[in-house]
Each structure stands twice: as C-alpha cells, then as structure tokens.
C-alpha cells in the first residue's frame, strides 16, 4: 500500500515534511531533580533526571575521576503498544535504546563539570506510536534543562523515512511498519552538529543526503517548538518552574 496519497498527504493527513503535534511540560515530578513530559502525536514519554549525585553502589565500577557518567534506563509501559508487552524493561530493544540515549547525552552534557558523579536518566514510554528514540531524546533534553544540568546545547531528535523519492519526517507506527528505511538523528541545532544517527533498513547512497537534510530540518522544527515553549514559560514567571502550561 502507498504511504503517500495521490494528493500528496500521508495516512494521518500530514504533508511529508510536517511534524506531528508536539506538546510538552516541564517539572512534572516533584521528587526528581528534573522531569519532563512530551507528546509527539500519539507517542507519549515521561523523563526524569536524578543527579548529579554520588555513584550508587552497583555502579561504583563505572565512576570516572574526571567526569560524570550517565546512566539511562528506558522502559515501556505494558499497555503502550498495540500488543501487550510481556515485560516493561530489560528486553533487547530497551537495552539498545538505553545505550543509544546514553551515548547521545554523553556528547551533549558537559560531563567534566561533575567529576565522580552519576546522572540518571529514566524514561518511561506511556504510548508508543513510532519515533520512540526521538521522543525520548526530546523529553530527556527538557528534563535536563529542568534539572539545571550544563549542556553544550539542546539536543533535538527527529526521524525520517523515504518512499517514492519523498522523505517523510517524524514517522508514526504505521509508517514504521511499512518496511521502508528509517533514519533517526539527534542534532545540536545551534551548534549545527549531528551527535547521533541511526539507519534501519537499506537505501541507495544517493538518497542519503536527502534523508539527512530532511531529518536536520525536522530537528530544527522540533527545536523551534521546544524553544518557543521555553520562552513562553520563562517570560511568565522566572522563579516558578513551568508546571502549568500544559493544563
């Protein structure tokens, strides 16, 4: 079946270079040092940051003397996908995802400022509808900002797929299932650097440039949305963390 209709629209009515609706909220947990919630279409992710704090007992071997290490735990709620999951964490996909997010933020967080400490990133997927990695990275970025942890720049992530020589950005679950190649990347928009990229599936090498451009533009769109959210909340009241924008 076709991912793009003859009129040039996708299944959910978006144009190929259109993002899904993004909604976000910071400071959703009081217990955590930083937290955020993000919705990209139907993909919903909660992020919580603890730290920087002293390494917990089972992580002592990972302590670095000159920088902090990042511990990332990704879990997916059992009810988050169409098929009920048997276990929420610890499966292969979750481990891969944790490792990828950890790598992404090791590149962005200024880890040398927090020697001998640990930063925990906990991610919980409440509803999974494609582009999970991207939603997780965007949520974790907001949560890190909420926690006041020093970063070189925002990290914004976006995914894209390629069909009939058109690149679709921010792909949803149906488009993921269609079996086209999926390309996800995380960039630091103001420094113009790609810090993570992943390609699942095969494409012709001539098409890679187009896909990278599409993803970069998607990330910059995401950045514009998150940035606007930050500015709105910061202008309202600087002493109060933005807890009520979403409601």
């Amino acid at each position: 079946f076709e991912l793009i209709s003859d009129e040039g629209y996708r299944f959910d009515g978006r144009k190929p270079s259109e993002l899904r609706r993004v909604r976000c909220n910071m400071g959703v947990f009081t217990q955590a040092d930083g937290s955020a919630y993000i919705e990209q279409g139907n993909t919903k992710v909660l992020a919580a940051i603890y730290g920087p704090h002293e390494a917990s007992n089972n992580m002592r071997s990972r302590v670095c003397l000159d920088k902090c290490f990042i511990n990332c735990e990704f879990s997916q709620a059992m009810f988050s996908s169409a098929e009920r999951k048997k276990r929420s964490r610890g499966d292969r996909k979750g481990k891969d995802m944790s490792a990828h997010i950890k790598q992404t933020f090791e590149a962005a967080v200024r880890t040398q400022l927090y020697p001998r400490s640990q930063i925990d990133i906990y991610l919980q997927v409440l509803h999974s509808d494609g582009s999970l990695y991207c939603a997780c990275v965007n949520a974790a970025t907001l949560a890190l900002i909420d926690a006041g942890i020093a970063m070189k720049d925002y990290v914004c992530a976006c995914s894209a797929s390629l069909t009939k020589e058109t690149s679709l950005i921010d792909i949803n679950h149906v488009e993921e299932l269609a079996g086209c190649a999926e390309f996800s990347a995380a960039i630091m928009p103001k420094l113009d650097q790609i810090i993570y990229s992943e390609l699942n599936g095969r494409i012709h090498q001539d098409e890679l440039g187009q896909l990278v451009d599409a993803v970069t533009n998607g990330c910059k769109d995401i950045f514009a949305v998150i940035d606007r959210f930050e500015v709105i909340t910061d202008n309202t009241e600087i002493a109060v963390s933005p807890r009520s924008l979403h409601s």
């Binding site: 730290g51 926690a147 006041g148 002493a239």
Partner: peptide
C-alpha cells in the same frame, strides 16, 4: 544563574 535550585557537588 539557574532558575532552579541546583544540586552542587
């Protein structure tokens, strides 16, 4: 100056 109270090490 951070908006939030920061954890110091």
């Amino acid at each position: 100056q951070s908006i939030h109270t920061k954890q110091h090490i």
